[in-house]
Amino acid sequence: MNTGFEIVDGLTSADIAVRICAHSIEELLATAAFAMLKILLANPEEFNPELKQRIDIEAESMEMLLYRFLDELVFLKDARKLLALFDGGTIEHSVEGYALRGVIAVDSIDAARHRFNVDIKAVTLHGLSCRKQPDGYIAQVVFDV
């Protein structure tokens, strides 16, 4: 499996759809957060994390875990003016669903440093999927921009 992300055309005209491939769910979350940062920033190399913070998310399915994780990053951007990348963690799977106990690295939005392409205003349920494959995971998510 070729891991990483790509922009998917044809799924939405007004917004941005992304397909993500990864070997593990942890890698999937990390790649999804990176995709989000690359969509947001024209100069993602200027992401210089100054702090780390805990992130705990629970969801009934893998795809809702991905949805809530990305929704949390949208929230942090607007409410706390923070950009974030996944910095490791574990995902527990039980009969109740999935629980992420993780860490994100965060950088405060700085108009002097960060050049934005677009804003991501919401994560949508449109075309949202996250499937286990023999050699990893494939997910698709549409961002409202």
Binding site: F75, A79, R80, V118, D119
Partner: peptide, 18 residues
């Protein structure tokens, strides 16, 4: 509380996109 936190600092802003 999340909606409060996202909205309270954005009043009088144009936003982006279209």
């Amino acid at each position: 509380s999340r909606a409060y936190e996202r909205g309270i600092g954005q009043m009088g802003t144009l936003g982006s996109g279209n």
